[in-house]
Design a binder for these strands. Structure first.
Length: 294
DNA sequence: AGCCAGGAACATG
DNA sequence: CATGTTCATGGC
């Protein structure tokens, strides 16, 4: 009998909004949204992988372990982190009142949580893949990498993947990656990041020790291929730094332009002045602005 | 055809 | 430190 468990949903949480974001029109190879549920393969459990299906039932999330041996606590911990279930987002609504446009935006998508990418290696690779290309193509590149060297499980005729490890990424040569439509720079940057992981130069443990976000960003940016945008993306999506801002981000620039009804993209100074009003909620606001784009 | 895309590195003031 | 240039590969 497969394991099934229930996680009470917190206040100010909308599973529907989270599900919407997970399924916002791009072909993500690391989860499937169907009906009212999301199914994802995780690198947890004593025997490698565990396949989870999450849906909503009353005032709780219902989680079914479709495959694997994960313990209940591991599952709950993962989902809690992934969907930010423990986050207290009530202050966001309060602070957003300073700006009428933002207040409206936050109200519109209220309950959406900043969905994370808990695996540091994955988020670094994904942000490198996403540099300066449109998201449709970025998801395509990610899929080709994952399908080439990532592990997978099949369930009811469908294949579910996990993101490869650094060692697995290194199985692909520079030329392999180029044949998969990776640019030379992306191929090189992926190798650099994978090798930095294997060498222990970068790890969640190391980064988590850092108190300030600037210190963390500086450490990340010491890697070739990781600039300000990528470092902030990683800080926001994996390390959950609340004050991370993806400066230069095409989506942020366009979203802000739209939010403010401007006929041009904002300058950096304008963005800085805007975010100064919401200390501690910058990352969440960026995420909500991304939500508004689709 | 041409501009744009969830940029980074490098060179120059 | 601030701005400008180049690289790179598709999507639309």
């Amino acid at each position: 009998m497969p394991l099934s468990l229930s996680i009470p949903t917190p206040e100010n949480f909308s599973f529907k909004e989270c599900l919407w974001f997970l399924d916002r029109g791009f072909d993500d190879c690391l989860h499937k949204v169907k009906g009212g549920s999301v199914t994802k393969l995780l690198r947890i459990g004593s025997h490698g992988h565990s396949l989870l299906s999450i849906s909503e039932s009353g005032n709780a999330l219902r989680v079914d372990l479709l495959k694997g041996e994960a313990r209940e606590s591991e599952i709950v911990n993962y989902i809690t982190e992934w969907l930010h279930l423990k986050g207290d987002v009530a202050p966001l609504k309060a602070i957003a009142r300073q700006d009428a446009d933002l207040e409206q935006l936050v109200e519109k998508y209220w309950g959406l949580r900043l969905i994370s990418i808990p695996d540091l290696f994955e988020v670094l690779c994904w942000s490198i893949i996403g540099q300066q290309i449109n998201l449709t193509f970025a998801y395509k590149l990610k899929r080709s990498l994952v399908e080439a060297v990532g592990e997978s499980e099949t369930y009811e005729g469908e294949v579910y993947h996990v993101f490869p490890t650094p060692k697995q990424v290194l199985e692909l040569s520079f030329d392999d990656l180029k044949a998969m439509q990776y640019s030379s720079q992306k191929a090189r940057y992926l190798h650099i990041v994978a090798e930095a992981f294997l060498a222990g130069e970068i790890s969640v443990e190391k980064l988590s020790l850092m108190e300030s976000t600037p210190e963390m960003l500086k450490c990340l940016m010491s890697l070739k291929g990781v600039g300000e945008w990528t470092a902030n993306y990683v800080a926001m999506k994996c390390l959950r730094r609340p004050d991370a801002i993806t400066y230069g981000d095409a989506g942020l620039l366009n979203g802000y332009k739209y939010l403010k009804g401007m006929d041009r993209k904002p300058t950096r100074q304008e963005l800085e002045a805007f975010f100064e009003q919401f200390p501690g909620w910058e990352a969440y606001i960026v995420f909500y602005i991304w939500r508004s784009l689709a």
